[in-house]
Design a protein around this nucleic acid. Structure first.
Length: 772
RNA sequence: GCCGCGGUGGCGGAAUUGGUAGACGCAAUAGACUCAAAAUCUAUCGAUCGCAAGGUCAUGAGAGUUCGAUUCUCUCCCGCGGCACCA
């Protein structure tokens, strides 16, 4: 019989159909198996479809969850769509297609593309943040936040382009200039909803310590939250009864204060209540810096700017010194108290500023912190960089915020029973020109009855930011059909928390902070039973284009996985993406390298024709098999997929040199490979007469007693330099090893004329002779 | 600017976490098979000196600790990610 060729097209479509027909990937219920919830950060279904970068993380979770399944876990591995947001809206404006229609189309395309790669997603649990049955609960969480006093209205600035007449995202800015039209962007205050995330700052910081996340991501979160302990101190304004409250982390330097600085946003500067002599100059300065981006304002090496408040001075409560007051943009209005005491001797920025404006720099000794606070009547305080979360957008394509504004009753929440507040269909989602949401133009929708007094009221026209839907989606997968509560409590208890969460490092702060905040809130109101949503976390490194840039339509360097699957097969794509380098590292795509993965699979394919059912593995082969099982298992567990694959490659290369391969050994190899190349391995698995899908077969059992090393390589060094390598018994004693080293010819030659000072022995590795 | 991550052959990377630097893969070169090509197989493959045996240098640069440093410490250079309305 002529050996069959490896025909990936036929094999992959055959097995995908069989898996679907058998509902192989349906999450088990009513089982006593331990659970394993493996989750991908769900994608935003853009109009461009998937590029080869998207599946990298999904392949990893697929490999991991298949591995867990084969190890006896009940796996929950779902997928969904984060489909609200600005790009869909902009696309809609440009192409005159309703976002809902565009999103539907895009999701279909994404799903088709994903299914070709052979993922084990349980599609019965698919979710979509724009589905009213879903966003009903996003709105419900908002109502709870409002009820608990964690949501309030506030005037917060947006980036306003006066010529485009629209609000802009930071991404659409080039410094302080509108990317589209080149006008200077203004900060325009808008009525917004704000969530009091700062209330959770301390808990989010503390609970971070216990999380087994990568340290780098924890550090990013710590810095984002930015806790600093310091003190607030009042400086009396000379000749007046009131004072200026400053915040400092260096109260011990208070003796060296030579001036005070107010942020341009400081309330005392709004009007000239202080009687500043040069108020018009001050006002002009505030106008100038109003629109400067913060990064620019606080950058250490930027030229410092500021204006003195002529005629105003303050008294240092520690030593009675009279020091001048300034306004400068290197102090931020929203951090601390918006006012700082400047100690040029100890602070780099203060020194730059003092040097530039000829302010004195004095060197005074540090003072005792506690005594000083007592003496000046200050108070120890803790400040966070973390700001409350501006939770509204003046856009169409987002969840409507479920409140009404009544002339009599004020802000009235929409009753729970009336959720969801549906996003109305509109003719135009183009900006209104006032900065308000396009929803504001739909009188029919806006005008409503007050839920409380039944009088006339207006609906809130702000919508939620895209982050909202992704703050709790992992809970919805647990029981997506449940309509009564946010999640089925029983199911939530069973599947939560997420065991392994995988996504881009760019989400290290915002998404992961926001989601942790919501989760902790839901815990507080008794909706979830764990304090943290994600137990372990792995970051996916980007796949860059061959030219080293990000893949983007703009550069014309996008590679579509469909093409790769057609040419090489899904299994090869999977192997390639897992083998290309360390999982968390950004690596450029290289089409040439694809062939390596394909060759490896073909080698495995051809080995099936060398199987001998009758023979058994000898001790050496058995040992090598178990070494391979051990390494591959450990590597999958720790997301070291590249080395897992190279380990299998080495083993396969060894099997190529064997005349006849015992069937059991080959079958073990197939099982190890199956999470990476599920189609091909299932095909061979069945050719060999197995009846069950390989997905539901047991992972090879590791027996470490089978791993036997009779000989080891002993490295001989003289003064740290390798001189020879010898094969010795694995059970060699230290004295024997040292004797071999000293008597070795090459070593002897290198020792000529030298005296041995010391011999270092590293068990099972090397002998180093130190000689002078 | 601040915070985080990284820098190893022609290329992607490996290195049991202080113990043989370059596993595995790609590319390349030579050969076998073939009418030929593809595929496959075999060999070579960091630089340098040498006919060879063998030696020297080498993990972004420089210093330090150590018997021994890709790994730890310090200084510097370069690249990437984030900096709150991109998702």
């Amino acid at each position: 019989m002529k050996p069959k060729q490896y025909d990936h097209k036929k094999i992959e479509s055959t097995w995908q159909k069989k898996w679907n027909k058998a509902k192989l990937f349906k999450t088990e219920t009513n089982t006593k198996k331990p659970k394993c919830f493996v989750l991908d950060m769900f994608p935003y279904p853009s109009g461009d479809g998937l590029h080869v970068g998207h599946p990298k993380g999904y392949i990893a979770t697929d490999v991991y969850s298949r591995y867990k399944k084969m190890n006896g876990f009940n796996v929950l591995h779902p997928m969904g769509w984060d489909a609200f947001g600005l790009p869909a809206e902009n696309y809609a404006i440009k192409n005159k297609i309703h976002p809902e229609v565009a999103v539907k189309k895009n999701i279909k395309r994404f799903k088709d593309q994903l299914q070709k790669i052979g993922f084990n997603y349980d599609w019965e649990r698919e979710i979509n943040t724009t589905d009213p049955a879903y966003y009903k609960w996003t709105q419900w969480v908002f109502l709870k936040l409002l009820e608990k006093g964690l949501a309030h209205e506030s005037f917060e600035p947006i980036n306003w382009c006066p010529s485009c007449q629209t609000g802009l995202a930071n991404e659409d800015l080039d410094g302080d200039v509108c990317e589209r039209c080149g006008s200077v962007v203004e900060k325009k205050p808008m009525r917004q909803w704000v969530l009091k995330i700062t209330k959770y700052a301390d808990r989010m910081l503390e609970d971070l310590d216990q999380l087994p996340w990568p340290d780098s991501i924890k550090e990013l979160q710590r810095n984002w939250i930015g806790k600093s302990e310091g003190a607030e101190v009042d400086f009396k304004i000379k000749g007046r009864g009131d004072s200026i409250k400053i915040f400092t982390t260096r109260i011990d330097t208070i003796d060296g204060v030579t001036y005070l600085v107010l942020a341009p946003e400081h309330p005392l500067l709004k009007n000239n209540d202080l009687g500043i002599q040069n108020y018009s100059e001050v006002k002009k300065y505030i106008e100038e810096v109003k629109n400067k981006p913060e990064i620019e304002r606080t950058a250490e090496k930027k030229e410092k700017t500021g204006v003195p408040l002529n005629g105003i001075s303050v008294i240092n409560p520690f030593n009675g010194d009279e020091v001048p007051l300034w306004v400068a943009d290197y102090v931020l209005g929203h951090y601390g108290t918006g006012a700082v005491m400047a100690v040029p001797e100890h602070d780099e920025r203060d020194r730059e500023f003092a040097t530039k404006f000829g302010l004195p720099i004095i060197n005074r000794p540090l003072v005792n912190i506690n005594e000083t606070i007592k003496k000046v009547g200050g108070a120890k305080t803790i400040k966070y960089k973390l700001k409350d979360w501006v939770f509204s957008r003046q856009r169409y394509w987002g969840e409507p915020i479920p409140v009404a504004h009544c002339e009599k009753c004020g802000v009235v929440p929409v009753p729970e029973k009336d959720l969801p507040v549906m996003l109305p269909k509109v003719k135009s989602y183009a900006p209104t020109g006032t900065g308000e949401s396009p929803l504001a133009d739909i009188a029919k929708w806006v005008n409503t009855k007050c839920p409380k007094c039944k009088g006339p009221a207006k609906r809130e026209t702000n919508t939620m930011p895209q982050w909202a839907g992704s703050c709790w989606y992992y809970l919805r997968y647990v029981d997506p059909k449940n309509k009564k509560e946010i999640v089925g409590k029983k199911a939530e208890k069973y599947f939560m928390p997420v065991d392994v969460y995988v996504g881009g490092a760019e989400h290290a702060t915002r998404h992961l902070i926001y989601a942790r905040f919501w989760h902790k809130f839901l815990y507080d109101i008794g909706v979830v039973s764990h304090i943290e949503p994600f137990t372990t976390l792995h970051s996916v490194g980007l796949i860059l284009a061959e030219d080293g840039r990000k893949m983007s339509k703009r550069w014309g360097n996008v590679i579509n996985p469909d093409d790769v699957v057609a040419t090489y097969g899904a299994d090869t794509l999977r192997i390639y993406e897992m083998f290309m380098g360390p999982f968390s590292q950004a690596i450029a795509w290289k089409s040439d390298n694809m062939i390596g993965g394909r060759r490896f699979l073909e080698k495995v394919w051809r080995l099936q024709f060398k199987i001998d059912k009758k023979i058994k593995a000898d001790e050496k082969l058995e040992s090598r098999l178990h070494e391979t099982i051990k390494k591959v298992s450990e590597d999958i567990e720790s997301f070291g997929f590249n080395t897992a694959i190279s380990t299998m490659m080495i083993f396969v290369n060894e099997l190529e040199g064997v005349e006849k391969i015992p069937q059991k050994v080959y079958e073990s190899l197939l099982l190890l490979l199956s999470p990476f190349a599920p189609h091909m391995t299932d095909e061979i698995w069945h050719i060999l007469g197995n009846k069950k899908f390989i997905y539901v077969s047991a992972w090879p059992k590791l027996d470490t007693t089978k791993i036997k090393k009779s000989e080891i390589n002993l490295t001989l060094q003289v003064n740290g330099k390798v001189r020879d390598n010898v094969m010795v018994s694995a059970h060699i004693t230290e004295d024997e090893a040292k004797k071999i080293a000293v008597e070795n010819e090459i070593v002897k030659r290198n020792l000529e004329g030298k005296e041995i000072k010391k011999i270092i022995y590293v068990k099972g590795r090397l002998v180093n002779i130190v000689a002078i």
